[in-house]
Amino acid sequence: MAERPFHHGNLRAVLLDEAVAVLREDGADGLSLRDLARRAGVSHGAPRSHFVDRQALVDALAVLGFERLTAAVRRALSGSADLDDRFRRVAMAYVDFAIDDAALMDLMFQASTGGRPGPVRSAAESLFAVLDGALGTAPVDPGEDPRTTFKLLFAATMQGIAALVVARRIDRQQGEQLVEAALGTMLRSDLGTRALGDG
């Protein structure tokens, strides 16, 4: 592997890029600060100026993943005012990310379920805030929270479809067909109606 030149100020970004590459190649078990130092061409102690330990690296990767997924969802939302088209774009952005960066997606949601306040939780909340924006401004009845249920069902469904593709139980085209079928069902359901109102 050819060494990539970098300035001291962007070593953190280089290490995170290398960590994403390791995730794609070997999964989370392959992550180590020493190996990242070797891949980046720096001393084995250099990464510790940015990540005090492996958990700090994992948390930073989770934040990066949530930021990238949130940016992809934002781009998907910028294209259309039509409810069905809006959700189709968001769903495909979500599924594409979950397929192309499956190990990162797993790491993100494992890190965010720890319940600890901090950057990972904030990054996860930002993603769900953007998804909330996709729901429009339908009024919610007091005592009910259909929007949160809808967002969780949407995320669980899209991650499930992506997991089937990653496991090669279905191909990517079948995955897209499942996305279409799932959205048709969810958007027209009683839950969808209560969560979205007129969209």
Rank of each mutant, 00 (worst) to 15 (best):
V73Q: 06
E144L: 13
A71Q: 11
M1D: 07
P142H: 12
A129V: 08
I161H: 04
D29Q: 14
E180I: 12
L191G: 09
T148D: 14
D198E: 15
R89H: 11
L64P: 01
E18S: 14
F6C: 12
V22C: 04
R74Y: 01
H8Y: 03
L36T: 08
S80R: 09
A91N: 05
A181K: 12
A76R: 04
R54I: 07
T113I: 10
R168D: 12
P142E: 14
A123K: 02
P119F: 02
L164G: 00
D82N: 15
L127A: 10
S122P: 00
H44L: 11
E18L: 13
T149S: 13
G30R: 11
V90M: 02
Q159R: 15
L64Y: 04
R168M: 02
A62K: 05
S78Y: 00
L16P: 10
A111G: 05
A195I: 06
S32V: 02
R12G: 10
L33P: 01
T185V: 02
S78A: 15
V42D: 12
L57E: 03
A71I: 01
A46R: 13
Q174D: 10
L152R: 15
F66N: 13
V73H: 05
A21K: 13
D132C: 02
V120T: 12
G41M: 03
E25G: 09
A37W: 05
F109Q: 12
E3D: 13
L107T: 07
A93I: 01
G65C: 09
P117C: 05
V42N: 08
F87K: 13
S80W: 08
M158N: 06
E176L: 12
A111N: 06
A13C: 04
V120Y: 04
E144C: 01
D35M: 01
A138R: 09
A56T: 06
P117S: 10
R48C: 03
S49P: 00
T157N: 06
A181D: 14
S122G: 02
R38N: 10
K151V: 07
L196I: 05
M186L: 15
T137Q: 13
G9A: 15
L69G: 02
L183T: 10
G45W: 10
G45C: 09
A37H: 07
D35F: 01
A46N: 11
A124S: 13
G199S: 01
G118W: 08
A60P: 02
V42G: 05
V52F: 10
L83Q: 14
T157C: 08
H7Y: 13
A19Y: 02
M186E: 01
T137M: 06
D132H: 13
A2G: 11
R54P: 00
V179S: 05
Q173N: 14
M186W: 01
V14S: 11
V22K: 03
E144M: 04
D101V: 00
T185R: 04
D59F: 03
L127V: 09
A111S: 14
G41L: 00
A163L: 02
L69F: 00
L69C: 06
N10D: 07
L164T: 05
A56P: 04
G184N: 07
A134W: 05
I99L: 14
F128L: 06
S112Q: 04
G41Q: 04
T185D: 11
A19V: 08
D145C: 01
